[in-house]
Nucleic acid binder design. Structure first.
Length: 112
DNA sequence: ACCATGACGTTTC
DNA sequence: CGAAACGCCATGG
């Protein structure tokens, strides 16, 4: 993991997700200029736990607002609990009112 | 350079 | 609705 551009950005963006809001892998990828690399974003999340700074990966879901990556957390309920704890309603692994809690990356400052 | 992998996305069945 | 087939692309062996 020496990559400092793509992953770094992904982590930075993820850390900018406001509490109680969520975004999608595709949104992040698009914001980073590689809209076709949503998979990379997901993969970055996979490595996110290795980062020193905490990355709220639970606030990143797929474009349908489904917690596809929940299996990568401690328990399959952790991700959902974290989100619900922030006021997000989830039913059957799917975020309710996804459009309302969706957060589009913007105004992010990439340190570097 | 080639091949495999993947927390995606879209389309099709 | 669920599964599968593609497409896409960065990363690592």
């Amino acid at each position: 993991m020496k990559k400092n551009n793509f992953y770094e950005k992904v982590y930075i963006v993820a850390r900018h997700i406001p509490t109680g809001r969520v975004t999608s892998y595709g949104a992040i990828a698009t914001y980073l200029g590689a809209k076709r690399s949503a998979r990379m974003v997901g993969w970055a999340m996979n490595n996110s736990h290795k980062q020193e700074l905490p990355v709220p990966a639970h606030r990143v879901v797929n474009r349908l607002g489904i917690l596809t990556g929940k299996h990568h957390f401690d328990g399959v309920n952790l991700m959902q609990q974290l989100l619900e704890n922030e006021g997000i309603k989830i039913i059957e692994n799917q975020i309710q009112d996804f459009e309302k809690v969706f957060w589009q990356p913007e105004g992010i400052i990439f340190d570097k």
